[in-house]
Design a protein around this nucleic acid. Structure first.
Lengths: 206, 206
DNA sequence: TGACAGTACTGGACAGTCCAGTTCATTCAC
DNA sequence: GTGAATGAACTGGACTGTCCAGTACTGTCA
């Protein structure tokens, strides 16, 4: 009789990854001990080592696992309609969604975590950047390219425009979050950043 | 008899700070041992502890000491002439100087160092952000305000404009540097970021 | 005489291993 | 179906080796 769709081993592995994600996020890589993780996962240390050969491997896996969750964001970016009349509000909505998604405490925390350990795990930092950040940016660039071909925007270098778009939006809140503990921005702040950023972007690129 | 202008004690202290700065930058906070620092400073461990009560205090001091070096940057930002004919090239020069200064390996490394340890030293992160980053931004905002009053720019919120300016310039190279090891940008890249960023900025704010 | 070098030491944390005994899911005989 | 048999996965805790912050002590030099 199979009451569990996953089986014991897979369930344990899942528990370990969730626990590890939580503890690494909260206490950083070197601040986290394997005992902490085992304890929080309600699992013996040996089981942790059965699933993940060492601490570095476990860390890599939990970090890269988070890039899977970006697909929704990709969809949003690709779905901006080619409609001149609503371009402003469509981009503003996109901007708000961008800001909301990227100022989630977990996302910022993960970003800090990756940056903090880019010395020790350079490949991990690069991989996360490519699979996460650049994937979204490339999609945004493609969207801008399409909008330009439809005559809604005037753009020479789509990728540069995409970087400008995100830089205008996120420079402020991301920087603040990197140096301070938690997020200091209210929803009103974010809305303001969104409208102001889109205004500046469209003034330059329409 | 005092043959040295500083005194032996002050010289030792200086040596310790320089050594600590180097090692912390290279190996991070937790990767650095007090023995490393003492050895590099050619000083006994006991002397290190005579000058700095513990590791945390030493770290804080060397990080905050770096914010003193921003005065040159402040001067540059404040000195943009109110001349409509050369506004474009003046801002582009400023942008280039900005980018060159902030993509220095030491600066990026320090930034990483502060972000990486913002969990453990939240006050330090906040202090560095305020005394370093926000000071430059505020000066830039004041300059924009002046340029707006002289009719060269059209600006509602000078501080927001300053953030947009720096976001347009630095989002790309700073992000790359945070996640990859060293700087991947050539001087040509930086020039391109500068001219493109200023072009976008002026299209929106002139 | 006081600041320093050099070095040994303490106390605690932690990665990773080992092992003896236990749980659990599957298989196969009845 | 029921119930043993089997082997893999798991527990819990002890153990090793290492690293490091901070202290103590002895000798040296100015």
């Amino acid at each position: 009789m199979e009451t569990n769709e996953q089986g014991r081993s897979a369930r344990k592995r899942q528990a370990i990854m969730e626990a590890a994600t939580g503890v690494f996020m909260e206490k950083g890589y070197s601040g986290t001990s394997m005992d902490d993780i085992a304890k929080l996962a309600a699992v013996s240390k040996q089981t942790v080592y059965k699933h993940f050969s060492d601490k570095e491997k476990l860390f890599s896996e939990i970090v890269l696992a988070t890039t899977d969750r970006l697909d929704g964001m990709i969809g949003l970016v690709a779905d901006v309609p080619s409609d001149a009349d609503t371009l402003d509000e469509n981009l503003t909505r996109l901007a708000r969604q961008f800001l909301t998604a990227l100022t989630q405490p977990q996302v910022l925390q993960l970003r800090r975590l990756v940056i903090a350990n880019a010395d020790i795990f350079p490949e991990l930092g690069a991989a996360w950047y490519e699979q996460g950040f650049e994937r979204v940016l490339a999609t945004l660039a493609a969207t801008f390219q399409r909008l330009a071909e439809d005559g809604l925007l005037r753009i020479d270098e789509p990728l540069l425009a995409a970087h400008h778009f995100s830089g205008l939006l996120m420079w402020i809140p991301v920087n603040q979050a990197m140096f301070h503990g938690g997020p200091q921005h209210t929803q009103a702040d974010l809305d303001h950043y969104a409208t102001a950023g889109v205004r500046t972007f469209l003034a330059a690129y329409r």
